[in-house]
Amino acid sequence: MKRRVFGLGAMSTLALAGCSSGPRLLRYDGPEVTSIVVNKGDRRMFLLNNEDILEAYDFDLGFSPVGHKQVEGDGKTPEGTYLIDRRNPRSQFHLSIGISYPNSRDRQIARALGKSPGGEIFIHGQPNNEKAKGRDWTAGCIAVQNKEIEQIYAMVRNGTVITLRA
């Protein structure tokens, strides 16, 4: 009987340990991030509280980084003003926060080309199951290091304005 209780306890402990092996979800109680500015050409992203820079990050982009995303599969990262609109704590790229691409203008441009505008544009960490393939390896997302996305995930709220510049 004691062996069975011990075995069940050990299995429970291992099961719970397996649940806690995901990304760290940090807490943030500093100044509010009121906007994000992404300078694609410089590969620099800034988290701002009004005019003050709270944090700055280097990043990788899509495999075709120059120009505004127009259609699904073009490997480009959007340019323009969007919102952070969702969060994924179980992302295949450590953690991720979603950007509200496509907007109505993006859909109109793609429709005129007879194509889909695509979507699923995120700021995210590194791949969970493989290594990133050099610089500008995403399909149009903004990729930072895992420790950085943990910090960004904690600091940025849904509804935050993000401006992506060439």
Rank of each mutant, 00 (worst) to 15 (best):
L47G: 03
T160Q: 06
G159D: 11
I99R: 02
R165L: 15
S64W: 07
S116I: 05
E72W: 14
G98A: 10
Q70K: 15
A143S: 10
I36N: 00
H124M: 06
R24H: 07
A143W: 12
K131Y: 11
G98V: 07
P78M: 06
N128V: 15
K133S: 12
N129H: 13
R165M: 13
T77P: 07
H94F: 09
S116L: 12
I121Q: 00
Q151T: 15
G75K: 05
N88M: 01
P102C: 06
C19G: 13
F6H: 02
D106Y: 09
A132Q: 11
K131A: 11
I142F: 01
G75A: 11
D58S: 15
R86Y: 12
D52T: 14
L48N: 01
V33H: 00
T138K: 05
F63V: 08
R111L: 07
D74L: 08
I36G: 02
V38K: 01
Y82F: 15
S35L: 00
V66W: 12
G134Y: 03
R157N: 12
C141Y: 09
G75H: 09
E55W: 13
A110H: 07
N39S: 13
L25E: 11
R111P: 01
D42E: 14
L8D: 05
G98N: 07
S64E: 14
I123P: 05
G75N: 05
V37A: 00
S64C: 08
R86N: 15
L83N: 10
N158W: 00
P127D: 08
R165C: 00
D85V: 06
L48D: 03
G125I: 01
L95I: 03
R43D: 03
G159C: 07
D85E: 09
A132W: 10
T34S: 10
D74Q: 08
R3P: 00
N129P: 01
D60T: 09
S116W: 08
D52E: 14
G114P: 10
N146M: 04
E79H: 00
D106A: 04
N88E: 13
N146S: 05
P23T: 06
L16E: 04
A17G: 11
I36H: 02
G41W: 04
K133H: 10
A10Y: 10
G67E: 13
Q108C: 03
L95H: 02
Y28V: 03
F63T: 11
L61I: 13
P23A: 15
G125T: 07
R165F: 14
S91P: 07
A154C: 08
Q145G: 08
L26E: 12
L8K: 04
A112V: 00
G159P: 02
K133G: 01
L14A: 13
Q145N: 13
D58Q: 12
D106V: 09
